[in-house]
Every structure is written in structure tokens, then in C-alpha cells.
Amino acid sequence: MSGLTKSPWIIHYDASSCNGCDIEVLACLTPLYDVERFGILNTGNPKHADIFVVTGSVNEQNRQVIKNIYDQMPKPNVVIGVGICACSGGVFKECYNVAGGVGQVIPVDVYVPGCSVRPEQIIDGVVKALGILEEKRAAFAAESKKGTDTGANADAKKDGGN
């Protein structure tokens, strides 16, 4: 499991973003920033993902979609709210159809403010998230060691050996 933070897979969902942050998330993957060289991959499948990147704010429509994606992700995982809309609602905070930041629906580990966010900031946020992911992973491993039978212990040892 220690490979998790070496090559985290990311799933991105556009809540009600204006696209500005979405295209910057995509820009991170392209040659100038190229996060794939660090092993960070973008995936469309929540069950493959370790990091959930949400752009834009929550509304009644997408509340359930965000929750579904989050619930399908394997644990441990981290959530990054990218852009000021994902943090608090941003300039659209007062709109009738905007409920606020992503924190209202799922627990968020890293907030990356900005309108729109620069790719450098997003990468910075992901790196921060990796630290949290590592902590969560360690806690998760310790938990499963403590609470379960020898089978789980053997698994944990195997991972440690790797």
C-alpha cells in the first residue's frame, strides 16, 4: 500500500464550476506541467481513484452525484476542493441555486482557493494532499492491524515488505 502516495490516481468532477478551474486541472496533465511524470494519473472511474478533485460549488442537482462518487472511492482517500467556488461558493455564493462549498457534502482535506486556480497551485494542493493521504494510510494500516485477525496482519506485513 505504500505505493499509494507514489502514484496517486485522481478523479475529477465538475460540480457547478465555470470551467475555468476544470481546464486548469486538465492543463496540469499536459506537457508544460505534466503531472504524469510524478505518477499522478487522471482516471474516470471512482473505484480506481485515491484523490477526488472537485471544482465548483454544490447545488441541489449535483449533491448526490458528488456523494456517490465519494462513497464509491476506496478508503483511505483524500478530497481536494479546487477553486474558490469549491471552497465557499465564490462569486456565485449569493446565487439561488448555489448551496456553498463542497465541504457541505463530503469532508474536504485540502482547499485550493483562487479564481481561477493556477496549475501550479493545483499541483501544490495535490502534493499537500499526498502528505495527508500518507497519514491516513498509516492510520488505516494501524487500525486494520489492531482490530483484525492474523490474515489482515499477514497482509500488512506483506505491504510493509514491499
Binding site: N59, Y96, A99
Partner: peptide
């Protein structure tokens, strides 16, 4: 357009 408020 399913809004949270009806006929906003």
C-alpha cells in the same frame, strides 16, 4: 433546469 427554488 431543476433548481433548488421553484421558479426562481
Amino acid at each position: 433546469i431543476r433548481t433548488s427554488v421553484k421558479n426562481p
